[in-house]
């Protein structure tokens, strides 16, 4: 199944980027443009509202969380429609169906992982205050994030076959989630009474851990980390359960 997922992911990446004029560069370019926009909006226009946003460290601050988030969000949204998009394959070829979901998740993490690594190396060489040891320290967090995305993708792709409202609603939900997570800001800019609630968002643990590992910022509390790991385990278990239960009925409802 893994070999099949690799093949599918490779094919997916090739068709997405080789077919376009700019090729693989687009994969890197898109988050870069996004980064520029966010850095401009938050670092320049809203600088009064976001303390610390005008500091020189804001770009690295943004980069170390935004890239993993982009990979995660793209993996979830592409994984969700994977079964529906491959309806023609499901009715005609015998294949492990989970591979269809695994492939876009792997592809998203691969393409954005490469971009992320490249950017981190550039920042490291440019002396942006990156901790070299953080490159190794961040790996478990990225692996967990991958599993988180996979679990969500399995769950949502199975549900999407039956209830088609999920895919159209997903971009809005992901957008909302991004702004509720400490991607553009740190938890410390929030009013005192709101801060503990951030622990309940599984993304908080990921964001703060990545900044801790790469930028030597304060580590997330145990509660936030536990929430993140717990969410990954729960979502993965739920996703596997729902997918196993429902996959034999996909062809009847596609």
């Amino acid at each position: 199944m893994l070999a099949l997922a690799f093949q599918l992911a490779r094919r997916d990446l090739r068709s997405r980027y080789l077919g376009s004029f700019s090729g693989g560069a687009w994969a890197l370019l898109q988050p870069l443009v996004q980064l520029a926009v966010y850095a401009f909006v938050f670092g320049y226009i809203f600088r009064q509202r976001l303390p610390g946003a005008d500091a020189p460290g804001y770009v690295p601050f943004l980069v170390v969380v935004m890239w993993p988030w982009t990979a995660f969000a793209e993996a979830v949204s592409r994984g969700t429609t994977a079964i529906q998009d491959n309806a023609s394959l499901i009715g005609k070829v015998a294949l492990p169906r989970a591979a269809l979901v695994l492939a876009p998740v792997m592809a998203s993490f691969a393409i954005h992982g490469i971009g992320f690594l490249g950017l981190l190396l550039v920042m490291l060489l440019a002396g942006a205050g990156l901790a070299p040891a953080g490159l190794a320290l961040m790996l478990p967090a990225l692996a967990l994030l991958f599993l988180f995305a996979l679990g969500l993708a399995l769950l949502l792709s199975a549900l999407q076959v039956f209830v088609r409202d999920i895919a159209p609603a997903l971009p809005q939900i992901l957008m909302l989630w991004m702004f509720l997570s400490p991607v553009f800001y740190g938890r410390y800019v929030m009013p005192e009474w709101v801060r503990p609630w951030f622990d309940l968002n599984p993304m908080t643990g990921f964001a703060e851990y990545l900044r801790y590992a790469l930028l030597n910022m304060p580590a997330p509390g145990l509660r936030a980390m536990a929430c993140s790991v717990g969410a990954v385990v729960l979502v993965l278990a739920l996703g596997l359960f729902a997918f196993r239960r429902l996959q034999r009925h996909f062809e009847d409802f596609l």
Binding site: L159, F162, V163, A242, R245, L246, H249, D252, F253
Partner: peptide, 24 residues
Amino acid sequence: SYPRVFRRSDRFRSLCSLLAGRAS
């Protein structure tokens, strides 16, 4: 057998019963 799915609510009902491990 193929399930008879006509109304929008049918899909949701099938989903619930399948998740619960029953026939659709």
